[in-house]
């Protein structure tokens, strides 16, 4: 039991627990808060894996921007709760069985068929630092980077168009 493993198990438990919390909360606001906890935990995993820049982005973009947007919409619509419904009651157990099946399959693959995965022991200097990520991004991935900027612009316009009220009604 190395300290590393202990840390991993501890964080993994938090991650799974917060995921399940998000899943089973009646109130959407709680779900959102559980998800934020989950994202922060994952950001810590990123740090452990040598992705400093990504970890910071994760906290800033996901836990910060995106989840705030979720909370904002939940508050705006006032639809934080939904009444109990009987539709598709039979789907729930089937879905749980399938999810367990999926996990079992993945673990089977990981531990019985891909167990020879050995990590690189010596990482390059400054692996995952903002400088190296920036270098790679602007050297090798310049075009996709620019395309994502267009994607964001399109998404922005789309969001505005979708939520705009028709002026002709008033």
């Amino acid at each position: 039991m190395t300290p590393e493993l202990i840390t991993f198990i501890f964080l993994a438990l938090i991650a799974v627990a917060s995921g399940l919390g998000m899943l089973f909360s009646r109130n959407a606001v709680y779900s959102a808060i559980y998800l934020i906890i989950n994202f922060v935990t994952v950001a810590v995993f990123y740090l452990l894996l040598g992705g400093a820049f990504i970890a910071v982005s994760q906290v800033a973009v996901y836990a910060g921007a995106i989840m705030v947007l979720f909370l904002f919409v939940i508050m705006l619509l006032g639809a934080d709760r939904l009444g109990e419904s009987k539709t598709l009651a039979w789907q729930r157990p089937l879905a749980i069985i399938l999810a367990i099946g999926l996990i079992a399959e993945t673990l089977f693959v990981l531990f019985f068929q891909a167990s020879d995965l050995v990590a690189v022991q010596t990482l390059p200097e400054g692996f995952g630092s903002p400088a190296s990520v920036g270098n790679t991004l602007f050297r090798e991935y310049l075009l996709p980077f620019e395309v994502t900027s267009v994607l964001l612009l399109v998404a922005m316009i789309g969001a505005i168009v979708l939520t705009r009220r028709e002026k002709t009604q008033s």
Partner: peptide, 24 residues
């Protein structure tokens, strides 16, 4: 054709699990 989106998603999910199982 139930009209429930979740139902359709379930079909996709069944497909994923079954195909993955077959590949394993």
């Amino acid at each position: 054709q139930t009209g429930f989106v979740r139902n359709y998603a379930l079909s996709v999910f069944i497909g994923v699990v079954v195909i993955l199982g077959y590949l394993i």
